[in-house]
Design a protein around this nucleic acid. Structure first.
Lengths: 218, 218
DNA sequence: ACACTATACCGGTATATACAACGAAGGAAT
DNA sequence: ATTCCTTCGTTGTATATACCGGTATAGTGT
């Protein structure tokens, strides 16, 4: 069954109604709903109903953060500037990590600003076979991560975090001096076994800290 | 109910037996077991039984890594050296983050070695009320994190990751020069609402990268 | 001694039923 | 118009029951 009748906030049929329409017992219907609730896609409100939730964008810790929402949540302005777009024949190691031999790879470099202060340099490689229209997006309106998530739902990710000294490119674009280290986050995102994108994110350590919360209770 | 009859590998009573000894229905007993299974502490084997599992040490991503196991898994030797142990009256900000006003706080500084090369400096503050015997442990045999987990099961954690330039203390103890940045991981661990410990972990960036995998499929 | 079989036990699943707790909505009384 | 109360719908929880498919074990037959 597919619940595309309504988007976020839609109230799904009651457990009793579901059991009738599926010719199952209420307990069985409830169990099915339970699974979706545990995934975070539905939310129960006792005595009221069950509702479609916002997909847990940062579902897993060391969350796949949406930098745009994150900055907005702080009440600040987010701005993106595309430094370069290009199409590569994957010969170097980074491109090959996309496991897209014989095919093209898009590369894009973006700077993210918080209140006009540079806060992240994003260097992203995208599998051109799987996301053919990637470069045509308007990255002043939608982040690369958001667009990719909408095309291919994220199922797996691998993340490596390092501390590095800034290169000349980083110093210039992030407006930092040579004594300011940077956090380098390398993230491969996969969808159903295919590597969609490989992103390298650089943050100036004097303006940004990675944070994460873990709750095991549930 | 407490399942301390047996450790890892112990077979818990069957669902039928549980239902009898607790005067509940099998479905109710099963549901209770279900919750523990979902936490990863029990494992069902159909037609055989339900068994106590190894606690999921790196349950959540940006895992609470066990550096000893991590190094052993690479086939290397792990060694710890305690630099200092002390008992503080919490007046500075770090100690107060343990929310243990009016009580004492243990502080311990440990260096971790991988094949005799320093790889982590651990600066840890522990709530003395909740873990009174902390300083008496033999930290050449059990890591601070392991001991704390055994006393108070981890339920929540907050993590902040930064890139910093090394202080003189870091340069000396991690055997790095002043141009090598470090990853600084600040981690507060909580158990049932109480802050047990606050750890500050420093890694030399030329020898260590934080890694994490995320799998949403389950 | 070995191989095969029957049986009991176990988790996995589905169903029907009953009651509790709570919120929302509507009607009645003031 | 406001307040109170009743009723109904919904989730939350517990119980009893039945059946399935798998494993493990004891027993049987060769």
């Amino acid at each position: 069954m597919i619940l595309n009748n309504g988007g976020v906030g839609y109230k799904i049929p009651s457990e009793t109604e579901l059991s009738v329409s599926f010719s199952a017992s209420r307990m069985t219907a409830r169990k099915a709903v339970d699974e979706i609730v545990n995934k975070g896609l539905l939310k129960r409100i006792p005595s009221v109903g069950t509702f479609v939730e916002e997909p847990p964008a940062q579902s897993s810790l060391l969350e796949i953060k949406n930098i745009s929402k994150e900055i907005s949540a702080r009440g600040h302005r987010h701005k993106m500037t595309v430094l370069s777009k290009m199409t590569l024949i994957p010969n170097d190691s980074v491109a090959q990590s996309l496991s897209s031999f014989n095919s093209k790879v898009f590369k894009i470099v973006i700077i993210h600003f918080e209140n006009d202060i540079p806060i992240q340099l994003e260097e992203r490689y995208v599998n051109a076979d799987l996301v053919p229209n990637f470069l045509e997006q308007d990255f002043s309106k939608i982040t690369a991560n958001e667009y990719l998530s909408s095309v291919h739902p994220l199922t797996d990710a691998e993340i490596v975090i390092e501390a590095i000294m800034p290169t000349n490119i980083l110093k210039h674009n992030l407006e930092i001096d040579e004594k300011t280290p940077c956090i380098k986050v390398s993230r491969s995102t996969m969808s159903n076994g295919y590597t969609i994108s490989h992103a390298i994110l650089y943050y100036p350590s004097n303006r940004y800290k990675l944070t994460s919360s873990i709750h095991l209770t549930r």
